[in-house]
Design a protein around this nucleic acid. Sequence first.
DNA 1: ATCCCGAGGG
DNA 2: CCCTCTGGAT
Length: 216
Amino acid sequence: MPRESKKAKTARAAEAFDLLTEEYPEAHCELDFVDAFQLGVATILSAQTTDVRVNMVTPELFRRYPGAEALANAAQEDVEQVVKSTGFFRNKSKNIIGFARGLMADHDGAVPKTMAELSALPGVGRKTANVILGNAFGLDEGVVVDTHVKRLTTLLGFTKEKTPEKVERDLMVLFPRDRWTLLAHLLIWHGRRVCDAKKPRCEACTLSGLCPSSRV
DNA sequence: ATCCCGAGGG
DNA sequence: CCCTCTGGAT
């Protein structure tokens, strides 16, 4: 089978996006915080865990530390107790405190709006920066690539890359910029609801007609 | 046993 | 590119 042309792949990508939009008109970031600081903290905490568990600890965390200044002055062991159930709690506590201290030191406690400034902050990597820019500031600067996004885009034949950075580059080429943030949400929702990692329900999948990996 | 919206370091 | 750090649901 000849390699799919770039044009055909782009068309298939657009079709997949439209079908998912129909399927999940309400798709949004499930770490629901409008506040950029809190969204950043929640995203750092979401490593190797689910949004559900992050959303269980954040109320108490932000009750104690409502903003960058409070968290910057927190004792790490206190923070560890609050976020313990999300796993990796030692690293995560260090990272969110580092994030808060970076904001205080470099930006007067405010969250910056550029990829370069965000990524320069301790504890903030590419994914957290993308989540903040896309969901708190409405800026499509990149595509969040988590395990769902990577799995589904690989199954769909939209990328063959392994590292999140390279997968993201492929998706940024394949999808128009104003869809980047929503794209990640749609794929994550679909990954959780239908295209599960262990038992994908191809028979119930709206994308089965255009998915090279579909079993139906 | 496997999976989950990550960052930092080797 | 790889590894480590960690808990909890399935």
